[in-house]
């Protein structure tokens, strides 16, 4: 009887703690909601492409493929840098974490610059929001993703400041995990937007 009462309290946290996702439950609710929202937009895009294959094929042909590929590399590199920042912080290397997270923010900023260059080129050619249904989806999907990356860059810079001031340590870094999860969400969404909008021309 005594053995049971001794074992139960110790076993309880072990059984419940692993259900907590990295970064906490709140940021994961955001991730799931955002992913489903973008997913719905992408599925609608795919259905419209099936209905108007010629419009969507012409729209895809007008996109700057090498720039989109470069932007994908930049975003994936940002994800890698953020993962390194968190690993360094967990190991108690705050200076290293500072550098990695600053580099991750820079990659986010570079993504925003390259995307702006791509947009400027589209606008110069008169391919705005109301050009056709392909470009309506293009602007909405890439525009909302752009906003998410911009917010993530601000969050990363805030985390950089926090690490620099000693607010986040190896023992206390939940905010950094949450911010990192939000940043990776931008990766995940782009990994669906990129093939759907830029690579797939509509199968038949």
């Amino acid at each position: 009887m005594n053995d049971r009462t001794l074992v139960a309290p110790a076993a309880q946290p072990v059984a419940t703690e692993p259900f907590e996702p990295p970064g906490g439950l709140l940021v994961w609710i955001v991730i799931v909601v955002e992913t489903l929202t973008f997913g719905a937009g992408l599925v609608t895009f795919a259905v419209s492409r099936r209905d108007e294959p010629a419009v969507f094929a012409a729209g895809r042909a007008a996109l700057h493929q090498p720039l989109a590929l470069a932007n994908t590399f930049v975003l994936l590199t940002g994800g890698w840098l953020m993962a390194n920042a968190l690993a360094s912080l967990r190991a108690g290397r705050a200076k290293g974490a500072e550098r990695w997270i600053l580099a991750a923010s820079a990659s986010g900023a570079l993504f925003l610059v390259l995307k702006s260059v791509e947009w400027a080129e589209k606008l110069r050619h008169g391919l705005g929001l109301h050009h056709d249904s392909f470009f309506t989806y293009y602007w909405l999907l890439t525009g909302f993703h752009f906003l998410h990356v911009a917010v993530a860059v601000v969050i990363l810079l805030g985390l950089y400041r926090g690490i620099r001031r000693g607010r986040y340590t190896a023992a206390d870094h939940l905010d950094v995990e949450s911010g990192g999860a939000f940043w990776h969400m931008c990766d995940l969404i782009w990994l669906l937007v990129y093939p759907t909008v830029y690579l797939l021309g509509g199968a038949s």
């Binding site: 970064g23 995990e177 669906l192 690579l199 797939l200 199968a203 038949s204």
Partner: peptide
């Protein structure tokens, strides 16, 4: 046009890698 399935399969693999490795799942 035959690229639909391979491209989406690669996208799924990439999302899994980001989620499991980078996000710590």
């Amino acid at each position: 046009r035959a690229a639909l399935l391979p491209i989406l399969a690669v996208a799924a693999a990439k999302c899994s890698l980001v989620g499991l490795r980078f996000m710590g799942l």
